[in-house]
Computed example of a mutant assay.
Amino acid sequence: MMTINQTNSTFSLDDLCELANLEGDLREIAAHEKLGIGKQPDEDGFTDNIWAVAWLAQELARKCGLEPHRYTHNSCKALFGDVVALGRAVCPGAWDHFYNVGQEEARAILEGW
């Protein structure tokens, strides 16, 4: 469902729901961190929790890069900021690194590889 408000920003209920689900996924990973679940490093030194956060960050960044106006409606801005802050808090460093990877992937796709 999409509507236009007075400032011509596109509102998407799907975007809002997607951010809410992402927040839920990050809270689940944060709980796993606190409980010691998924904290065994693999051969690369990454835990299951870090890989999960990495995937979420990369996917979010790719979507934002491919659709720059996504999540920019006023109803999404605060939740988007909360999701990014939570991702950074759950696995410091991993979120920012893999968010950048997702942005680079989006740029490559838009430039036609």
Results as ranks from 00 to 15, higher is better:
111 E>H: 07
45 G>C: 05
90 V>Y: 04
97 H>K: 11
54 A>M: 06
51 W>R: 15
83 V>A: 01
20 A>P: 00
72 T>S: 13
73 H>E: 14
28 E>P: 04
47 T>V: 01
3 T>K: 02
27 R>G: 05
105 E>L: 08
92 P>R: 07
60 L>W: 01
78 A>C: 00
46 F>W: 15
103 Q>G: 12
91 C>R: 11
38 G>T: 12
94 A>H: 11
4 I>P: 07
32 H>K: 02
55 W>I: 05
16 L>I: 05
30 A>V: 00
32 H>C: 13
11 F>D: 03
81 G>S: 15
74 N>R: 14
3 T>P: 00
90 V>G: 10
108 A>S: 14
41 P>V: 11
106 A>C: 09
59 E>A: 10
97 H>I: 11
4 I>M: 14
88 R>V: 03
111 E>M: 08
67 E>L: 08
52 A>W: 03
113 W>M: 14
84 V>N: 06
100 N>L: 11
34 K>W: 08
104 E>G: 02
10 T>Q: 10
95 W>E: 02
110 L>C: 04
65 G>D: 01
54 A>I: 06
75 S>A: 13
107 R>G: 08
108 A>P: 09
28 E>N: 12
110 L>G: 12
55 W>C: 12
70 R>E: 00
40 Q>M: 12
103 Q>T: 09
30 A>M: 13
57 A>P: 03
85 A>E: 15
109 I>E: 05
25 D>C: 14
99 Y>S: 12
89 A>Q: 14
52 A>M: 08
55 W>P: 00
110 L>V: 08
67 E>Q: 04
68 P>G: 03
110 L>Q: 02
37 I>R: 13
88 R>Y: 00
76 C>V: 10
46 F>Y: 15
108 A>D: 10
59 E>P: 01
69 H>S: 14
7 T>G: 02
13 L>N: 03
96 D>N: 15
56 L>K: 07
1 M>T: 04
5 N>G: 05
12 S>M: 00
47 T>R: 10
29 I>M: 03
62 R>W: 06
7 T>Q: 10
74 N>C: 05
56 L>H: 12
16 L>Y: 12
41 P>M: 02
74 N>K: 13
1 M>K: 04
26 L>S: 09
59 E>I: 07
7 T>A: 05
109 I>F: 03
12 S>F: 00
50 I>M: 15
12 S>G: 05
23 E>F: 11
47 T>C: 14
105 E>N: 06
113 W>V: 13
67 E>N: 08
103 Q>F: 06
52 A>V: 01
70 R>I: 01
42 D>A: 06
86 L>P: 15
99 Y>P: 07
24 G>H: 07
80 F>S: 01
69 H>R: 14
111 E>R: 13
12 S>T: 04
19 L>Y: 13
40 Q>V: 15
7 T>D: 10
70 R>C: 05
90 V>F: 07
78 A>M: 09
65 G>C: 02
44 D>N: 04
50 I>V: 13
34 K>A: 15
43 E>W: 13
18 E>H: 06
50 I>F: 14
65 G>T: 01
76 C>P: 07
23 E>D: 07
41 P>Y: 09
75 S>D: 14
16 L>G: 01
92 P>V: 07
95 W>I: 08
52 A>Y: 03
25 D>F: 09
107 R>M: 02
54 A>N: 11
89 A>R: 15
56 L>I: 12
